[in-house]
Computed example of a mutant assay.
Amino acid sequence: MKVLILCTGNSCRSQMAHGFLQSFDKNITVCSAGTQASGKLNAGAVKAMAEVGIDISHHTSDPVEKYLGEEWDYVITVCGGANENCPMFIGKVNHRLHIGFDDPSHATGTPEFIESEFRRVRDEIKKGFQEFYITQIRKQELPSCSCGGTC
């Protein structure tokens, strides 16, 4: 199973989603990329994920072009705002999904408020990708019964 998570900068939301999905199942190949990859991770995202025991500090912010030649079971876009363009992936994809989230890197205010926004979005990403994992990936991996559904 191969999953590519896309956003614009590949520094925050896609990185958190990547970290969560990989933590749910080490057997899934998970990558993330951006149409305008920033080349670095957002420190707030790294900190928010560390708070829940997931280290994404070793991730890289990669351009989407790096993955165009590969075939993917799922490509998932995570941009959320109506004023933000979700990237389009033109490679080989079996399923395209959109699971949108606010961009906490755009939060303004006190340091405490900004941290709370990273935590809020982190928790929303966990919930959204847990649901995706259970309803899409685990569903495909569970053996089907031969009794007609009565077991």
Rank of each mutant, 00 (worst) to 15 (best):
M1V: 15
M1H: 12
K2I: 09
K2V: 07
V3A: 08
I5P: 05
L6G: 03
L6R: 01
T8V: 15
T8D: 02
S11I: 13
C12S: 05
S14G: 12
S14M: 08
M16S: 10
M16P: 14
H18P: 01
G19I: 15
G19K: 10
F20M: 05
F20L: 11
F20H: 01
L21H: 04
Q22N: 08
D25Y: 02
K26N: 13
V30H: 04
V30R: 10
C31A: 05
C31I: 03
C31R: 08
S32R: 12
S32V: 15
A33P: 02
G34V: 13
G34C: 11
G34R: 14
G34Y: 01
T35K: 04
T35W: 02
A37N: 04
A37C: 07
S38T: 11
K40D: 04
K40H: 06
A43S: 10
A43P: 13
A43Q: 08
G44P: 09
A45K: 09
A45M: 08
K47I: 07
A48I: 13
A48Q: 06
A48N: 11
A50R: 04
E51V: 05
E51F: 01
V52P: 14
I54V: 12
I54T: 09
D55M: 07
S57V: 06
S57I: 06
S57K: 06
H58E: 10
H59Q: 15
T60Y: 00
S61Q: 06
S61T: 14
P63T: 03
G69K: 12
W72T: 13
W72V: 14
D73F: 02
V75P: 00
V75W: 00
V75K: 00
T77G: 09
C79R: 01
G81Q: 13
A82W: 00
A82R: 01
N83D: 08
E84Y: 01
N85P: 13
N85V: 11
C86E: 10
P87L: 04
P87K: 00
P87V: 07
M88Q: 08
F89D: 15
G91E: 12
G91L: 07
K92L: 08
K92H: 05
V93I: 14
H95V: 14
R96Q: 09
L97G: 00
H98V: 14
H98C: 13
G100Q: 03
G100V: 06
G100K: 10
D102Y: 01
P104N: 14
H106G: 07
T108G: 02
G109T: 15
P111I: 07
E112A: 15
F113R: 05
I114V: 15
I114G: 04
I114K: 12
S116E: 14
E117I: 11
F118D: 05
F118S: 14
R119H: 04
R120E: 07
R120K: 13
V121K: 03
D123R: 03
E124P: 02
E124D: 14
K126S: 11
G128S: 10
F129D: 07
Q130K: 13
E131T: 15
E131I: 13
E131G: 05
E131F: 01
Y133M: 09
Q136S: 10
Q136V: 02
I137L: 10
R138W: 02
R138G: 00
K139I: 09
K139C: 08
Q140I: 09
E141H: 06
E141R: 08
L142V: 15
L142F: 01
P143N: 12
S144E: 09
S144D: 07
S144I: 13
C145A: 10
C145R: 01
C147E: 02
G149Y: 03
C151Q: 04
C151E: 03
C151N: 04
